[in-house]
Design a protein around this nucleic acid. Structure first.
Lengths: 295, 295
DNA sequence: CATTGGCATACCGAAAACGTATGGGTTGGC
DNA sequence: GCCAACCCATACGTTTTCGGTATGCCAATG
């Protein structure tokens, strides 16, 4: 059962004659006649009534015609759909993001994406650092928004911005009255920390910052998410050193203050598999850059 | 876009490898590899990711796969449907019947047909003699139940029974007291006649019967249908000479009596186009014979 | 009876597909 | 760290299939 035969069959049925169909198909009449007979032999029943003035579908031919034209349309549509996906006009873009970036970026990023690639289904998932890496590698997400970037030989990274570290504290804290907090004021205060460096590279940047200023902050709690960290800060359990964009998702009662003479920051990066040939990535990158531009 | 390529593509996608798919398709691995690459060239995008342990669909490949397997199924289904129609397992059987036979035959014929050819859509139409012929010729009905048969070079006839002529009269008529009515008693009485012979061959049989017995019955009315004829008989407008089976549809107040020493009858026949190769015809014929058997 | 219109058949050259042999890259074991 | 195993890609010769040209057959038409 060859698709070309079906195409010929449909043409003959529509033209109601082999000669006219051959003309329409830009081919000679005899080979078309042969193909139609071969199709009939394959089916095992005549599909046309040969009259003296052209050909006419039999009942069996009518039954075939409906399915054949649908099959032709489906095949053409399949090819077109594959091309559309390959070119990025359609498809699915699965984005793994991290919690802290959600409030800062998604409200600008999502509309931008919908405008740029309207035919593409978007799929956002908030994932931890290690999960983002794993799901990039197994391709169940296409791109990840990370802070900081993932380092892995299979993964490519584009830096699209950075976020200063700031100090998060309850608004009743005496430090909140300062415009910028000197590092020395942190000495000995309890710290609400994120998962250790091997799970979340942001922690190592915080640790490096403290080490450089020779500040020791005892770890009051380790929490999984920035959201939890801010809850504990609000509860007076300790202070947290977080990227500036965390402010946007901060609950009432938390204030952020810059650290005086500290310019340490975390890179915001888009990460994807080096071998991913998805054409959506470069579009995503542009949109993400726009979204990060006026953070 | 060739259906074979799509078949190969689906096989490779399902087997997740060219080698395994080739085995399943009973062919060598290299030509399958070539076909897949040709399909990719035709689409203009890679459909598989070549890994070291087989092949894996790209997004574009996934988009194609869904449509391709549907198209394959449709093509196969189309072939099967055509075969089913050609063999008479499915399809449509359009039956043109005449009014007088409806009450006598349809209640037995229709259930018989549904049992014999359950997959076939039945389509019954009550048609006048000339319309039956016309619609047989233009193939808009497959078979016709006729009384008497249609004579036409393109039309084939199978006689399946016969119906004696009887006299229809109101039950208050003095003739109704007789067991059988002698022809002489009809002399001069008004006749309710059906359309003239050129439109309805039954009329010529009635005319021949009267002529042979040298009876003259003035025509009180010509009506289109047997039903109308019986209405006028009931109204006392005249008598009608009708095939016996008309009794079954007769209104209350009409009685039928045989004509003494008259054995004239009308053939009940199944008619169809000589060149119709519908396999349903012979089945229909069997069912019609059964239905007519105990009339 | 010749002509026309339409499909079928015959034959030949061209294109496509299949099989065998072989290359190349990666994985996994000794 | 080398060798074997696995899997896909390429090359080439053979076979099948397809399309074009020439021609035949049949029916309808004038």
């Amino acid at each position: 059962m060859d698709l070309r035969r079906l195409r010929y069959f449909v043409a003959v049925a529509e033209a109601r004659g082999i000669g006219k169909a051959a003309e329409r198909l830009r081919m000679a009449q005899p080979p078309l006649s042969v193909q139609i007979r071969k199709l009939e032999a394959e089916i095992g029943a005549p599909l046309f009534r040969r009259g003296t003035r052209g050909m006419d579908l039999t009942e069996a031919g009518q039954a075939l015609l409906a399915r054949a034209s649908e099959a032709l349309a489906l095949a053409a549509d399949g090819a077109e759909a594959a091309r559309a996906v390959a070119s990025g006009r359609r498809g699915r873009l699965s984005v793994g993001y991290m919690f802290v970036l959600a409030n800062a970026m998604l409200p600008r990023l999502i509309p931008e994406l919908r405008r740029s690639i309207p035919g593409v289904d978007l799929d956002f998932a908030e994932l931890s650092a290690s999960t983002r890496e794993a799901r990039l590698l197994d391709r169940s997400v296409t791109v990840a928004l990370c802070m900081p970037a993932i380092h892995h030989p299979e993964i490519q990274v584009a830096r699209i911005g950075a976020q200063r570290f700031m100090l998060a504290m309850p608004n009743r804290s005496p430090l909140a009255r300062l415009g910028a907090v000197p590092m020395a004021r942190l000495q000995g205060r309890p710290l609400i920390a994120l998962p250790p460096p091997e799970q979340d590279p942001a922690s190592s940047a915080v640790a490096a910052l403290l080490r450089r200023h020779q500040i020791v902050m005892p770890i009051a709690s380790r929490v999984e998410t920035v959201h939890s960290a801010m809850s504990l800060v609000l509860a007076g359990e300790g202070l947290a050193i977080l990227p500036a964009c965390a402010q946007l998702g901060a609950p009432r009662g938390i204030v952020f203050r810059p650290l005086r003479d500290v310019s340490d920051s975390l890179d915001i990066a888009v990460c994807w598999r080096r071998d991913s040939q998805s054409p959506l990535i470069k579009t995503f990158l542009k949109c993400a850059e726009k979204a990060v531009a006026r953070l």
